[in-house]
Simulated scan of single mutants.
Amino acid sequence: MIQSLPLLDKKVLVPRGENQAKSFSELVERYGGIPIEIPLIAFRPIEKNQRLHECLQALDTYDWIILTSNVTVETFFSFFKEEKVDSVLPRIAVIGKKTAEVLNTMGFSPEFVPSAYVAETFVEEFGPLLSRGSRVLLPKGNLAREYISSSLTKLGAQVDEVVIYETYMPEESRDRLAAMLAENKLDILTFTSPSTVDHLMEIVNEHGLHEQLKKCLIGCIGPVTEKKLRAWGLTVHASPKEFTVKEMIKSTIAYLEMEE
C-alpha cells in the first residue's frame, strides 16, 4: 500500500466496462481513492457483411495490418473463432504497448510499435516502412478518426479501412451517471477517448448538470481527448505526456499535491 494515499477518499470515475476496468480501479485503490465504475463506452462487433468478408478472405494480399487498440485486436480475432490465421496474416503494426500486450496473449507479435501512442506519431514513424503501392488493412470502430488512412494514402500506400465494431454508451450507465453527478458524488472524472467525453456531456446537457461538473477535477489520456474536452469548454487538470492510465493517475495526483 502506498503510504501517503494522495487520493484518499476521492471518488474517481472509471469510464471503462467490466472487462477493462479492473486494473484501472486497482490503481485508484492503491492511492486511497474510491473507484466508481460507470462505463461511458462499450463496444460490439458488427455483423459480418460483404465488405468485411472480402477483407478477411484477402488477408494474405496485404503487406501490413494496423491494429489501433485492445478492442480492435480482440474483435478482429473474434471473427476467426477456430480458424488458423497465422499463415495468412500480414506484418502487424500496433499503436500502443497495451495493444501489443493483448496481441502477444493471442500468440502474435507486432513488427512495429511507435514511440508515442498517438496517430500522428504512428504515421510519422511508420510511413518510412511503406513503399508506394503497399497494401494496408486498417480494421477500426465506427467512430474512429480517418487520420491514419488519409495520411498513409498521401504517402502512396493503398489503405483499405473496414469497420469491425460499433461504439456506444451502455443504457444502464445513463441514470447512474446522472445521479452521481447531481448529488456531487464524483470528485475526479477521467476520460480515455473523445467518445467518453461526448457520452458524458450528452448526460450533462440532458440533465442540466453543468454546475456540478465544474466541481470535478478532470484528467484525460491523449491530445485528441484533451482537445475534445476543451471544445466542450471544460478545464483539463491532468493530461500526461505518456498516454497511459497509470500516468494519468500520477498526473492527477501531481495536480492535487500542487493545489495543496
Rank of each mutant, 00 (worst) to 15 (best):
F112D: 07
I148W: 01
R145F: 10
V118W: 01
V88F: 13
A157T: 11
A116T: 01
F80Y: 07
H53Y: 13
S173I: 07
E166V: 12
G133P: 02
D63S: 08
V136N: 02
L59F: 08
E101F: 15
L59Y: 07
R91T: 03
Y165T: 00
F79V: 04
F80V: 05
V136C: 02
E183L: 08
K81V: 06
A116Y: 09
E74H: 12
V73D: 04
D160Y: 12
E101M: 11
R145E: 09
A58V: 11
Q50A: 15
F108W: 10
E125H: 03
T99A: 05
K97A: 15
S150T: 09
E74A: 14
L89A: 03
L181T: 02
C55A: 12
T153H: 09
D60I: 10
K98R: 04
N49S: 06
L155T: 14
V88C: 01
V162E: 01
D63N: 08
V159P: 00
T105G: 01
Q57F: 12
K81H: 05
I92D: 11
K81Q: 08
A182F: 12
F80E: 10
L56C: 09
K84W: 02
K48N: 09
E171C: 03
S87F: 15
K97I: 15
Y62I: 07
F76D: 05
Y117R: 08
G127A: 15
V136F: 04
A42C: 11
M106E: 11
A179G: 06
T75Q: 09
N104L: 13
F126E: 04
A179T: 08
V113W: 11
D63Y: 02
W64N: 03
G156F: 04
E82S: 06
V85F: 05
N104M: 14
T153A: 04
D60N: 03
R51M: 07
E111D: 10
F112R: 00
L152D: 12
E124K: 04
V88G: 00
D175L: 05
L40F: 05
N70Y: 06
E124A: 06
L56D: 10
T153D: 12
E146N: 11
A100Y: 13
I164N: 01
L103H: 07
R145T: 14
V73A: 07
S173A: 08
A179E: 15
L59V: 07
Y62G: 03
A119W: 00
A42V: 14
M180Y: 14
K48H: 12
F77C: 03
P45H: 12
E120A: 10
L103Q: 01
F76M: 07
E183R: 01
P128R: 04
L56H: 04
A116F: 08
A116Q: 02
V136M: 08
I148T: 02
L103R: 08
L130Q: 03
L59T: 09
Y147K: 01
D175Q: 10
E172K: 08
F80S: 06
H53R: 15
D160T: 15
